[in-house]
Design a protein around this nucleic acid. Structure first.
Lengths: 345, 345
DNA sequence: CTGAAAGCGCTAACAG
DNA sequence: CTGTTAGCGCTTTCAG
């Protein structure tokens, strides 16, 4: 007759278990495991040994509650699948690596309501800081962020009023700058191709506003426009380009709201044997790596994603050389990369 | 003369604050906020009102410690920047959405040691489950996972022995299947182009093994090979293809370890005016969306990423129709998508 | 250098 | 339907 085990065989180990196994007080075990305070080499060894032998994994939940300290940094972005946010994440991870801080990602799918939930969820874990894409949030979200009592960094846009700190480029300015380059190169019948605007992509929206503003200054307006949503961006870029060019064959420039649809458009134009950039010019936005492998180099504008991620993380980690403590605004200058799809002026 | 505030103006709110503001006991406030147990409509309103007014955000750390329940699911993947893991994430997020569980991502950069750290870190938050890419882990990592006492799902590979559950395709089989299709189509001098193998990408390795095995069965061997690492995959695909074809001009098939370099190779071949798939065939791996926009459709093999993510999440969430509780192994069948770059047999 | 006591903010388990 | 009492597993603080 076998007896049932006296203890749940799978309760997870606690400090106490390590303490008993090593014959050292819980407190000292805790000190060893966190490298805090002085502990004699002998006890240290004994403790580490016991911990390893048992396979002890500390419970950060209890630790965080007791110490009121959480080594997590929340990152809230609209999407993971479009190549631009992963690069921001890379910058963030890099800088956080040697700070003991850990990024935790939440995705909002470009929905304000979803973003609000994600922010709420993250704040409820009391992170050391929060990085949020964009400056537009629901009222409730803004209130939560402002109340949170931790560093908040809004990234990838600085056209607006940040809650605390902000890092990124001015998309209005990026749009303006691109328009000026296009006009300077002598193009006059300029079309815009982008995502369906209801998508809540405020940055694309601002880019277009800046773009139109600069065109207006040159006495021009967007000659035609075409929107898409969903599907393979490269394929969509082709389709949109064909549709638009059939409708407005006299257009001499195509401004795409992102590089992926721009690349699709470029491939299509080249296949049609169109004279790029002679008869027709093209430009995208973002400076994605992909462009390097295309038959011709699409003009684009770098959004400084890596630097943005790095800087945001530095602000949270308190590593800014500036010594500024909060409410810092860092603007990067979007660089025009003319490539081979804009005529030389 | 103004008096200083009696309390830290920025300590974060607690249940007690809501309790006092609403005149309801902490316990009942807690119940309202979690929708647990019966509470009269009147008190409920009163509590919610106070909570909203104060801007109270519950402290999940304390909640988790008290309830021994954490609504987090750890996801450990090698990289975010290559298009394939984001899609797995999409599958995971989708299914987790209505379960109250939240994914937390950790990135290992294809380094076993880094992976071990990330797993340790995640386990220390006592998540409800863990999803880890691949079956190969450091010994320490394996031990931790086995000990964790939570559902562990290893994804994207089933060639090996899982710790608990596993979901994905057999890469060996995928490689074999592709080789068989290539041989059946009449190609004989077959080259392989892939990432530098030290990169620790076990799945690519297994694909190649299966590939060579099937070739051997047909009395063939890989005729030449070329490796790359880093940089724009599309651009690298071009370069590698050029290098390899200059060295071995008589090769009649190019098997790429991923679609991105395959796409680069395809673009290069088309530019050179090579007869694809007549004189030379090409194939990649992964079935990425990008391929849809290319001038010709690259042959590839779908890795069932979305389904894999979904299924892994279902297992963690306990939503499997099968009713199986743990140690479940789900194998998907990698589908060959012949596209336009393999001769019809 | 080491240990004992007192919580961190919440929820489980009871009692009304 | 509502309240009370004990902790959850750690770290802070203070004594040795």
């Amino acid at each position: 007759m076998t007896r049932p085990p006296l203890q749940d065989p799978h309760r997870t180990l606690t400090l106490r278990d390590v303490s008993e196994a090593s014959g050292v007080s819980e407190m000292t075990v805790s000190r060893v495991l966190r490298n805090r305070g002085d502990v004699s080499e002998t006890t240290r060894e004994r403790v580490l040994d016991a911990a390893r032998r048992l396979g002890y994994v500390p419970n950060k939940i209890a630790g965080a509650l007791a110490s009121q300290r959480v080594n997590l940094v929340g990152v809230v972005i609209p999407s993971l699948s479009n190549m631009v946010f992963p690069e921001v994440m890379t910058g963030i991870s890099e800088t956080l690596e040697d700070t003991g801080l850990q990024p935790v990602v939440g995705v909002s799918n470009y929905q304000a309501e979803r973003e609000e939930q994600v922010i709420y969820e993250m704040l409820s874990w009391r992170p050391s800081g929060l990085i949020v894409a964009g400056l537009e949030h629901s009222e409730a979200a803004q209130a939560m962020l402002a109340q949170a009592g931790i560093p908040i960094v809004e990234i990838m846009d600085i056209d607006g009023t940040p809650i605390d700190s902000a890092v990124g480029i001015s998309h209005r300015r990026a749009g303006r700058k691109m328009a000026e380059a296009i006009v300077a190169a002598g193009y006059r019948r300029i079309a815009f191709l982008g995502t369906h605007m209801p998508t809540n992509d405020h940055r694309a929206q601002k880019r277009l506003e800046g773009f139109e503003e600069a065109l207006a200054k040159a006495g021009l307006a967007v000659a035609d426009r075409e929107y898409y949503s969903g599907g393979s961006a490269l394929a969509k870029g082709r389709e949109m380009t064909e549709t638009l060019l059939r409708r407005s064959p006299d257009v001499d420039f195509l401004y795409y709201s992102n590089d992926m649809i721009g690349a699709g458009g470029l491939l299509w134009c080249l296949e049609q044997g169109l004279d790029v950039p002679g008869k027709i010019g093209l430009a995208g936005f973002n400076g994605v790596e992909l462009l390097e492998g295309l038959p011709r180099r699409l003009a684009t504008m770098d959004a400084c994603r890596l630097e943005t991620g790095r800087t945001a993380a530095e602000i949270i980690a308190g590593k800014r050389a500036s010594g500024v403590i909060g409410g810092e605004i860092v603007e990067f200058e979007p660089k025009l990369e003319p490539g081979d799809t804009i005529r030389k002026a």
